[in-house]
């Protein structure tokens, strides 16, 4: 939005100086920069002209202080530059990849499900505080492979249960699919989580488009997703799973090796048939010999 070049952001109230190193990302609200501070070291700085959004997001992140999934926030301040007032908050810089980048490497099914279950548990935690995380997409989820830790970075979309959704990405939005209203409730949350799971399973965000339940089933089938898992996803999309808590419980019950088992069974059958044939041949030869 703002095409300015600058190298230092200086807080109007608390006088801290941040040297901007590079742009980390851009979003609907503003821009995120990697910056350094002489005491705090590397930090992420979110800068915007919208006082409302910045103040709101800062306050929301602070609510989750002590929860491992949210970044630590340091301060909220204003910055005056060329007669304009900007607002910013400073938070911990989270190293690692976001989920979109992480997905570029192939992940086995078990790992995908494990990561997804961690994400679900985090969303469940957030839902328990009475809020819905409406914009739960790949770019907002940071993955630390080594520690199997998941962190969320964008808290601008959280709204109290019962209110209208403020921010969304159409793919994850129940209303864009024509499957329910754009209102923050627990089944809206389950819907967006189910879409996230689907993109994980399909190994791509771009391969999953807004469609119908039957198009979802087709996508899942193409990716060899076990039947019980795709059934669960469909239920989640249809609003038949009441909360992320229930979603998580149902996921735990799913046997990911279902496919493999049938494979194993097939191999066993094949082996039995083969040995029977061998026996038959052997017997035939014997009979011939006897003659």
């Amino acid at each position: 939005m703002y095409n300015r070049k600058f190298d230092t952001v200086k807080g109007k109230w608390y006088k801290n100086e941040y040297r901007i190193l590079k742009l980390l990302g851009k979003g609907g609200i503003g821009e995120i920069y990697l910056a350094t501070h002489e005491k705090r070291g590397l930090v992420a700085l979110k800068l915007s002209k919208s006082m409302l959004s910045i103040t709101r997001e800062y306050d929301t992140i602070k609510k989750y202080k002590g929860k491992g999934f949210a970044p630590i926030v340091y301060e909220l301040d204003d910055w005056q530059c060329n007669g304009e007032t900007y607002h910013f908050f400073v938070m911990e810089y989270i190293k690692g990849y976001n989920l979109a980048e992480a997905m570029k490497k192939h992940m086995p099914l078990e790992l995908k499900i494990r990561i997804f279950m961690i994400i679900l548990r985090i969303i469940e935690d957030i839902n328990e505080t009475g809020l819905i995380y409406s914009d739960i997409k790949h770019e907002n989820i940071m993955v630390d492979y080594n520690n199997m830790v998941i962190r969320l970075v964008d808290f601008g979309s959280l709204v109290p249960i019962g209110e209208n959704i403020k921010e969304y990405t159409p793919l994850y939005d129940r209303c864009s699919w024509g499957l329910g209203p754009r209102v923050a409730d627990l089944t809206y949350q389950v819907f967006s989580a189910a879409i996230l799971l689907m993109t994980l399973l399909a190994d791509s965000v771009s391969l999953v488009g807004i469609g119908s339940i039957s198009s979802v089933l087709k996508t899942l089938e193409k990716n060899n997703v076990p039947k019980s898992l795709s059934n669960l996803i469909c239920k989640a999309l249809k609003g038949q799973i009441k909360s992320c808590h229930v979603f998580l419980e149902k996921l735990k019950d799913i046997d990911l090796n279902e496919k493999k088992k049938t494979c194993r069974l097939n191999i066993a059958l094949d082996a039995i048939i083969a040995s029977l044939l061998f026996l038959l041949v052997a017997v035939l030869i014997k009979i011939r010999h006897l003659n």
Binding site: W13, T55, D77, H87
Partner: peptide, 18 residues
């Protein structure tokens, strides 16, 4: 005005506006 209030104390007003 709001920008002349300390950032930390703006939350109440933000809530009111929303």
């Amino acid at each position: 005005d709001i920008t002349n209030m300390e950032p930390q104390s703006r939350m109440k007003i933000v809530e009111f506006i929303e």
